[in-house]
């Protein structure tokens, strides 16, 4: 599995958040999560312009074996979604921390980012889960 990028923040439920230079927050699921889910076959993206709330379901990823809600790490408005996932949901399996991002949020409260796990804390969580 790939390294956990140091600039990412995480929910315990395996979603990542990346604060972009323009103040927006990009959201995806971790490499560990995609590995656990197996081959992804469908992603239900949020609507652009819709409101999302921290810790509440905003999207759904479906693997062959299960459907999983994706919680938004921060509150705000969805300003973009990764349309590539409509045709190639497996992009998340191939590059969970990069090309496999899911949606982009204009956050209403950037302080919520401080409540997330950093890369080291998330790495420990994953390690403990495996044992």
């Amino acid at each position: 599995m790939s390294e956990i990028p140091g600039d990412l923040k995480f929910l315990k439920s395996h979603e990542w958040a990346r604060a972009e230079d323009d103040g927006l927050v990009r959201v995806g699921i971790s490499d560990h999560a995609q590995d656990q889910l197996g081959d992804l076959v469908y992603v239900e993206l949020p609507e652009i312009g819709s409101a999302v709330k921290a810790g509440v379901g905003a999207a759904v990823v479906e693997s062959v074996k299960a459907a999983s809600d994706i919680y938004s790490p921060v509150s705000g408005e969805v300003v973009a979604v990764n349309e590539l996932l409509n045709d190639k949901p497996e992009t998340i399996n191939e590059d969970a921390f990069g090309e496999g991002w899911i949606f982009l949020v204009r956050p209403s409260d950037r302080a919520e980012l401080d409540e997330l796990l950093d890369a080291n804390e998330y790495g420990e969580l994953v390690e403990n889960e495996d044992h």
Binding site: S13, H14, E15, I29, A33, Q36, L37, G57, V61, K65, A66, A67, S68, D69, I70, Y71, E129, D130
Partner: peptide, 8 residues
Amino acid sequence: MRDFPRQA
């Protein structure tokens, strides 16, 4: 995420 599959 919900329904997260677990290792045996």
